[in-house]
Computed example of a mutant assay.
Amino acid sequence: MYESFFGLHSKPFDLVPDPRFLYLGRAHQKALNYLRYGIEEGAGFVLLTGEVGSGKTTIIRNLIGELDTGVCLAMVFNTRVSGEQLLSLINDDFGLETVGKDKVTLLRDLNDFLIARHAEGCRSILIIDEAQNLSPETLEEVRLLSNLEAAHSKLLQIILVGQPELQKVLARSDLRQLRQRISINCNLDPLNRQETENYILHRLELAGNREAVRFAEGAFDVIFKHSRGTPRLINIFCDFLLLAAFAESTTVLHPELVEEVAGEFSTREASIREKDPTASGPPMGAEENGSWKDILSLIEDLQDRQQKLMGRFVLQEKMIKSLIDGQREVAKQKAENLRMEETLSGISRQLSDLRTGLRFSSGIRSELPEKEPEKKGFLERLFGV
């Protein structure tokens, strides 16, 4: 909605994980390099973890975009499933028939498929997102999939993506075999203060205008303080900042405006702490048992305020339109009056010329018949002849 006002061709702080907007901070660049290396070297298991909103999905989508045509890819997002259900989801994403088949048949079909792709020179990769939701039993089923191998290489590479809780699950003693098979392990840390500033300007530039707004002194510090370098929270903060600036018809994010938006974050966090006085350690967005709920609640609060601001904005737009329409009507009347004035001026000049001509026409009254005294009277009153 505000894109044209700021000279942008798209929303710079959308919550959709768009790989076009990927900003590679130190941790993100490292993770991407590790993932690339793991795929090129045919690592059996690769693990990527990071907090909610840290950019895991964006990195994975960027990685997928780099894969060549010689890769067969399956992705699983629904991880609250049993081992057999997970196997069915994997086969389905590889394009295999799954209806009415038991676990043994599903596993045999997957093995035959992977062998056929390997013979064709294709690499097969499985990406399991939100892997922290998998039960230890299901994770063990995933480990068994890595036993599918050819003479000199794995038939299936597996990339596990999840929140930090996944690391704790993998630390269980009964999952040590799976843990030992993970050859690439990387974690996404939050952006630091300078990376947060670079991230914001990077997204504005990719959206069409790096200088769309001017950040007041200390604005980046406030954004970093309340977002803690988490990309998703930065997006929420900055999107609302742009909306608030748009509602005020300004391209300057002055301290009052930044602090007002920051207050929404502080108020929300204080509310969370009040409801749970025992909450300590990592700030909002990093709690083990509900960070996603807190973030969604924050998004809902911001969207509610967004709607209220948009209501005010629409009313102001209507008022402005009414004033503009009134000004247009006044300008139209002035133009009409000007045309009338010019016409009257022309008529006056013609009348003056006629008076002058009639004064020099002696005997004009004698030329009029006596039976037309009304015309003679009219001429006398009009021209004084």
Rank of each mutant, 00 (worst) to 15 (best):
P283Y: 05
D112L: 07
H152C: 02
I60K: 08
W292T: 15
E130A: 04
L48R: 10
W292I: 07
L139E: 01
K168T: 12
H254C: 08
F237Q: 01
Y23L: 08
G95I: 11
A244M: 02
P17I: 06
T250E: 11
D109C: 05
Q167A: 02
I364E: 07
C72V: 12
L110I: 10
T343F: 09
F6H: 07
F265T: 11
I90W: 02
S366E: 14
G162W: 08
I125P: 14
E66Q: 13
D112I: 12
G311T: 14
E137A: 09
F378L: 10
L242Q: 00
E288C: 12
G346A: 11
E40V: 12
L302Y: 00
Q303N: 14
L368D: 03
T138R: 01
G363I: 04
A119D: 13
K168E: 04
Q167Y: 00
A212V: 05
L114I: 01
L233P: 14
I236K: 04
R20F: 07
K334S: 15
I295M: 01
M284R: 08
V330I: 05
E137M: 10
E140Q: 04
L35Q: 09
I115W: 07
L233C: 02
E269D: 06
H9R: 09
R203F: 13
L206M: 00
F240E: 03
F237A: 03
E140Y: 03
L107C: 06
K293V: 14
A171P: 12
D18S: 06
M75I: 10
R305I: 08
I324C: 08
V222T: 04
A219K: 03
G95T: 11
L188Y: 11
I236H: 05
T251W: 03
L87Q: 06
S361F: 05
K275N: 14
R359Q: 15
D174T: 07
P231S: 13
R172N: 01
K30Q: 14
R117L: 01
F360M: 04
Q85M: 02
P231R: 06
I200P: 00
L204V: 10
E217F: 01
S280C: 09
V52W: 13
H9W: 11
L15Y: 02
A279D: 15
G7C: 07
E287M: 03
